[in-house]
């Protein structure tokens, strides 16, 4: 049986104005842009250890790098935090790292059932042609 088609609900809501400016002089010899602020709609969820997470992470990147990730268990999140420390040199103390992993595994834990945002399964296996 084909999986049910999901209703597509689009919500339109106006949030903060993002000010994006670009300047170019008359001969195209100099180009100057101004980047908007971090996405204010990608805030970390409230939860135990959210502040220590925010304090450690946002100095290098916006929070949407975190909130867009698939929900995962502590082991997977630990891998990411260790990568931040070992590869990117993030100055995260051992105690803070534990707290961050705890926060992520709790607030961005694995999804038990596919959420509405997950792509439906591919077509029936029996129709696998050509």
């Amino acid at each position: 049986m084909k999986p049910p088609l999901r209703p597509i609900i689009s919500g339109a809501f106006i949030a903060t104005i993002i000010c994006a400016l670009a300047g170019l002089d008359a001969r195209g010899q100099q180009k100057s842009i101004t980047l908007p602020d971090d996405n204010s709609m990608a805030q970390l969820k409230a939860g135990r250890n959210v502040e220590v997470t925010r304090n450690n992470c946002v100095s290098c990147h916006s929070t949407d790098y975190i909130v867009r990730q698939p929900g995962s268990d502590a082991k997977k999140w630990e891998g990411e935090v260790i990568k931040m420390i070992n590869v990117y040199g993030a100055p995260i103390s051992e105690a803070d790292a534990k707290a961050i992993i705890d926060y992520l595994a709790t607030s961005y834990g694995p999804e038990p059932n596919p959420a509405p945002g997950v792509v439906p399964a591919r077509p029936d296996k029996k129709n696998k042609k050509p």
């Binding site: 999901r6 597509i8 689009s10 919500g11 339109a12 809501f13 106006i14 949030a15 903060t16 104005i17 993002i18 000010c19 994006a20 400016l21 670009a22 842009i33 101004t34 980047l35 908007p36 996405n39 709609m41 509405p116 945002g117 997950v118 792509v119 439906p120």
Partner: peptide
């Protein structure tokens, strides 16, 4: 200028992502 609004993309993975207008 851009005003931030949710994109109406029909790809479920994009649900709720804002449309933004960068330089």
């Amino acid at each position: 200028f851009a005003s931030s609004k949710a994109s109406n993309e029909t790809d479920p993975i994009l649900a709720g992502r804002p449309l933004v207008r960068y330089p």
